[in-house]
Simulated assay, not measured.
Amino acid sequence: MIRHYLADRVLFILFYVINTAAIVLVAYLSLLFAGLEQPWSEFTYMGLLALFFLLLGLAIDYARRRPLLKKLLEMEKRNPLPLETALELETMQVPSREAFLFIGMLRRYQERYREELDHYKAMQEQHQIFVNQWVHHMKTPVSVISLLTQQGKQQLEDQGSKTFLDEINDENDRFRHGLELMLHLARLDHFAVDFVADEVDVVALLRELVNEEKRQFIRRNLFPEIRVDTKDPFVYSDQKWLRVVFHQLLLNALRYSQQGKGDRITIAVFKEGDATLVEIQDRGIGIPAHDLPNIFSPFFTGDNGRKKTESTGMGLYLSRIITDRLGHSLYAHSQVSEGTTMTVRFSSRTLHDR
């Protein structure tokens, strides 16, 4: 701390030394031109006296500034720096007018920042409330449309009309999935509040999701295959959030598989050491190698997104955020024209350190 203090006053010390040397030099030249004897002992005394007052002044100034410097160095190590920094500094004795003005300016800046932050949080909460209410209101017409199309298929005998109703139902399902994605994204800010750790049977959960999307499998002529190579399919996680992840990965597998060709979507649950792995593999169009590093970025759709207009670029981003917050791992392996494998890894320490 003393080193920093002296480094800030190098210029002052230099000018003080030069000034003292100039005074001694003037006295020496004056005596020299007057033909008088040069009193070197007095010159030495003048230099030592000047040095004494320099050190005394620096010591007094350092003693006055030391508490503030110590506090600033302590705050520098804090991460993150709290918004009460200015209030904390104002409680100290300020050593100079400059420091007083700086602390006052810092306080006004932090007050303005806090006001803007509170305003932003209020707007964000209002937006989330609006989104949640809007999504819940829209679920009702979505359910009604689904019910009406099913009733229409039962009442109509014309195959063309049934096909038309199937297309309406498919678009309705896309809308429903979009609403669910929007709702989950809005709830991410309250993840900790809406989190319940429990033992989850991943096989039962996956079978439930496959059964829920069975109409999509039939419609796209795809076949689900669940392989279980472990006697312990239980993991520690939050079932509701984990369901969102698996559902999104399953929808992606359905969406990017070769449609109408009778391919399989394989879901494998197995052990790897102490970890439990869940793989969802399709045999679809695959992901280009240059797109793989970015598939978990928000709004990234890549080359496949240009071919599939229904892609939003938010599904895998949401899945990665959820798995990270749950303490799991999510990664992808893919080759063009061969398919994609999405893997969720549950380590033996999952949730225990969270």
Rank of each mutant, 00 (worst) to 15 (best):
Y16N: 01
V17W: 09
T20Y: 11
L25E: 13
Y28C: 06
L49K: 09
L51F: 13
R64S: 07
K70F: 11
E74G: 13
E84I: 07
T85A: 08
A86M: 06
E88C: 09
R108T: 04
R108N: 09
L117P: 09
D118S: 07
D118M: 09
M123R: 08
Q128T: 04
K139D: 15
P141W: 04
V142P: 08
T149K: 00
Q154D: 14
Q155F: 15
L156V: 05
S161Y: 15
L165K: 02
L165P: 07
D173P: 05
R176I: 01
L181W: 08
M182N: 12
L183A: 13
V193I: 09
D198M: 15
A204H: 10
E208P: 06
E213M: 14
F217T: 00
I218Y: 14
R219M: 08
E225D: 13
T230W: 03
W241E: 03
L242C: 04
F246E: 00
L249K: 01
L249V: 00
L249N: 00
D274C: 07
T276C: 06
T276A: 03
F296Q: 00
S297I: 02
Y317G: 00
L330G: 00
G339Y: 03
T340G: 03
M342D: 05
S348L: 07
R349Q: 12
